[in-house]
Amino acid sequence: MIFICEKQKLQEGISIATKAITGKTTMPILEGIYISASKEGLTLIGSDMDVSIETKVCAEVQEEGKVVIDAKIFGEIIRKLSNAEVKIETLENDIIQITCEKSVFNIVCMNATDFPALPSINEDVTVEVPQNIIKNMIKGTSFAIAQDETRPILQGILFEVKNKNLNLVALDGYRLAVKSEFLDNNNNIEVVIPGKTLNEVSKILEDKDDIVKITFTPNHILFNLSDTKIISRLLDGKFVNYLSLLPQEHKLLVNINKQEFQNGLERASLMAKDGNSNLIKLDFQEENVIITSNSQLGKAREEVSINMQGEGVQIAFNSRYLLDVLKNMEEDEVVMEMTSGVSPCVIKGKNMSNAKYLVLPVRLIR
């Protein structure tokens, strides 16, 4: 195998493929990056068996071949080379030679035939979504994925296509995040994608309206971004019926400026860092909400103007859960819907209906 490639392009390809290499494996071959040089150019693959990422890189291939190189050392060598052409060739005894201007590295490589084949995916059931929309939907829901391993299904995000809508849903038992977008597609799809997969997908997606093709099989999902493919296994099991968790009625509706509310919560929560509860209390009155926190560190009191319909309520939250929601909302004005101090609070934008969040309150011992 012999090929010549621009250092910058090779580095970008390595960066994309290595997002699937976790290093937590009993198979040494999976600590490597698979490189295939052919007439079409260069193909790089990284995999941890759960997630595989394949990306193509422009290169001048002088001799075809396939090898696997330790991803960490390969990535570090390429990153530190001069911004010039890199020549990579196989020598005898499983050695790869990397040459760039006056730098020469000889490193041991592994046999490409030992690298696991990617799952074959028949691209029949496909939906197409602009990259910036799916990136925004992942960002707006992934913070609510469960970190607790006792319910593996909640460590994923529900990917639902229904009634010409794409819905992404995440919940962890304390909060729920739902983002929806219109999708001109008549399929009915309901799969659960591991949260870590979607976070890696989000890093590769760009803020532009180029289309990403998403394909499903019973066990896998494929994201096709022209030069890059991401294949992930799906989580087994049925996701929680999230619609049944969203209250249909409320007795109190509050309009509030998002940034003022967020600033007040952030300041008040400085005094709420005693223990893990980050407890803050909200007292909704006619024209203001009083935010207080009280711990061994001291006390804090904030006041933010509101527009309220209904009777006031006193309610307590883990401030981190509220702040996570506010930081991921795009509107300047948000609406909070509540019924009592012990029932869930629903938060959404004042003008846009494509995002909805639910946060459970903390029960206070009186």
Results as ranks from 00 to 15, higher is better:
Val201Thr: 03
Ser202Asn: 11
Ser202His: 09
Lys203Asn: 09
Lys203Leu: 03
Ile204Arg: 10
Ile204Phe: 12
Ile204Trp: 09
Leu205His: 05
Leu205Ala: 00
Leu205Thr: 01
Leu205Cys: 00
Lys208Tyr: 10
Asp210His: 13
Asp210Glu: 15
Ile211Gly: 05
Ile211Lys: 14
Ile211Pro: 01
Ile211His: 06
Val212Trp: 01
Lys213Arg: 15
Lys213Gly: 10
Ile214Cys: 01
Thr215Phe: 09
Phe216Ile: 00
Thr217Gly: 06
Thr217Ala: 09
Pro218Val: 12
Pro218Thr: 11
Pro218Met: 13
Asn219Ala: 11
Asn219His: 13
Asn219Val: 02
His220Gly: 05
Ile221Phe: 09
Ile221Gln: 05
Ile221Gly: 01
Leu222Ser: 08
Leu222Lys: 10
Asn224Gln: 09
Leu225Trp: 05
Leu225Asp: 07
Leu225Cys: 05
Leu225His: 07
Leu225Pro: 00
Leu225Gly: 02
Ser226Phe: 12
Ser226Tyr: 13
Lys229Phe: 03
Lys229Gly: 00
Lys229Glu: 12
Lys229Ile: 08
Ile230Tyr: 02
Ile231Val: 14
Ile231Lys: 08
Ser232Val: 01
Arg233Asp: 08
Leu234Tyr: 05
Leu234Ser: 08
Leu234Pro: 05
Gly237Leu: 08
Gly237Pro: 11
Phe239Val: 10
Phe239Arg: 12
Val240Ser: 03
Asn241Arg: 13
Tyr242Ile: 11
Tyr242Glu: 07
Tyr242Met: 11
Leu243Phe: 05
Leu243Gln: 14
Leu243Met: 07
Leu243Gly: 06
Ser244Lys: 12
Leu245Cys: 01
Pro247Phe: 11
Pro247Gln: 07
Gln248Gly: 11
Gln248Cys: 04
Glu249His: 04
His250Asp: 05
Lys251Thr: 09
Leu252Met: 13
Leu252Val: 01
Asn255Pro: 00
Asn255Phe: 14
Ile256Ala: 13
Ile256Gly: 09
Asn257Gly: 12
Lys258Cys: 06
Lys258Ile: 02
Gln259Ser: 11
Glu260Pro: 00
Glu260Met: 14
Phe261Asn: 10
Gln262Val: 07
Asn263Tyr: 09
Asn263Cys: 03
Asn263Asp: 10
Gly264Ile: 10
Gly264Pro: 04
Leu265Asn: 05
Leu265Trp: 02
Glu266Arg: 14
